[in-house]
Amino acid sequence: MTIINKVIIIKIFLIFFIFLNISTLKAMNIKNSAVVFMYHKFGISKYPSTNVTIDQLDSHILELTKDKYSLQSLEYIVDTIINNGILPANTVGISIDDADKSFFTTAWPKFKENNIPVTLFVNTSTIAINNKNYLNWNQIRLLKNEGVSIGAHSHNHHHMPDLNIEEIKKEIETSNKVFLRELGEIPTLFAYPYGETNSKIIDLIKDYKFKVAFGQHSGVINETSNLYYLPRFSLNEKYGELARVKFAAQSKGLGIYDFIPVNPTPEENPPYIGFSLLDEKLSKSLDCFIFDSKGQVEKKIFKFNERIEIRLNRKLEKGRSRINCTTKGNDGYWRWFGHQFYL
């Protein structure tokens, strides 16, 4: 073998080795991140847990319309994830739950003026001509014509995991029939009332051909996210300060897989919680926090390379509880994963 041939072979080997390492590095990191914010009411101080003040809303819009963010529709975000596309840096989506009248009178004019795409999740039982607190169908049709996307949010806004399977089907089918009658189409996006679901409900949402479904737990959407339990950052008077919005909007996804328990309504209490990281280097600084109605739940975290196992020191209280896991990557960005349980 000549010296020239040896050099060529060595170069080919080096190129292959470099390519292999780059491919492995990309496989260890997510390529997409998207933050979705969720609002309910605007300027109605009587309900601080679901309301944001007008000043808060104005500060959010002023911040999120800066060039460093990319405001996109929820449809664009989920379609890009599903089709393995690439989202712009600092992609942000806006969603509204429950069709409160203050969205129509107060918030939408501001969003519209700033060309901000919005998805409105509607629970159909409250939409009536004489309901003083919620929109009517004429207003929803007007919003739709002006560019607002409409999503499904069940019919009666029940705690869906507390219903039997036939009652859940009725909730979905009744809502679908109303949408067909009033809008001529059934939404492709679904949001669980209170962010509560379980494996049976998720299977039904798939059976009824919804493209994705959203919860109400904090976290950043990425290609490893469960498409039928996507996170959203809930904003209200307490958790709607500008500093939190900035922090969330610039956070990145935490790529995870093999999350347990699979069912958001776990059968065991306390549940055994575990997941694996795409990038095991992030495990070193990773921390997780679990909260229920009593406050923070003490826990122990065990780290086995990319595998994270969490054991709680007590049972979770009945109702909603949440886990939030965060870590700071070498790129300087915070990465955030969240999940909600319902007992």
Rank of each mutant, 00 (worst) to 15 (best):
N5L: 13
I8Q: 01
I8T: 00
F13G: 15
F19W: 15
K26F: 05
N32H: 03
V35Q: 11
V36R: 11
F37D: 05
M38Q: 14
K41V: 00
I44F: 13
S45L: 14
Y47C: 06
P48D: 02
S49K: 14
V52K: 00
I54M: 12
L57S: 13
H60P: 08
H60A: 09
I61Y: 07
I61G: 05
I61P: 10
K68E: 13
K68I: 15
L71Y: 07
Q72P: 10
S73Y: 08
S73R: 06
L74A: 11
Y76I: 15
I82L: 15
I86Y: 02
L87K: 04
A89R: 14
G93C: 08
S95T: 10
S95K: 02
D97H: 04
D98N: 14
A99S: 14
K101E: 13
F103V: 10
F103M: 10
T106H: 12
F111A: 09
K112V: 11
I116D: 05
V118M: 06
T119Q: 09
N123C: 11
N123L: 11
N123S: 15
N130Y: 09
N131C: 09
L135T: 14
N138A: 15
I140H: 08
R141W: 09
R141Y: 09
L142P: 14
G147R: 08
G147L: 03
A152S: 12
A152E: 07
S154E: 01
S154M: 01
H157F: 00
H157C: 05
H159K: 13
H159I: 11
L163C: 02
L163D: 04
I165H: 05
E166V: 15
I168E: 04
K170V: 05
K170H: 07
E173C: 07
T174A: 07
S175L: 09
N176A: 06
K177H: 11
V178C: 02
L180W: 10
R181H: 15
F190G: 08
N198M: 05
I201N: 03
I202A: 00
L204D: 00
I205S: 00
K209Q: 11
V212H: 05
A213Q: 03
H217S: 06
H217E: 05
S218E: 10
I221P: 01
S225D: 01
S225Q: 03
Y228P: 11
L230Q: 02
P231N: 06
R232E: 10
F233S: 05
S234M: 12
K238Y: 12
K238W: 07
K238V: 07
A243T: 15
R244C: 01
V245I: 07
K246A: 03
K246Y: 12
Q250C: 08
S251F: 04
K252F: 07
I256H: 08
Y257L: 03
Y257K: 14
Y257S: 04
D258M: 09
T265M: 00
P271S: 01
Y272F: 13
D279P: 03
K281W: 04
K281G: 14
K284D: 08
K284I: 15
C288S: 02
I290H: 02
D292E: 01
D292Q: 01
E298G: 13
K299R: 04
I301W: 03
K303I: 12
R311G: 11
E317V: 04
I323R: 01
G332A: 04
Y333I: 12
Y333Q: 06
W334L: 12
F337R: 00
H339M: 00
H339I: 03
Y342N: 15
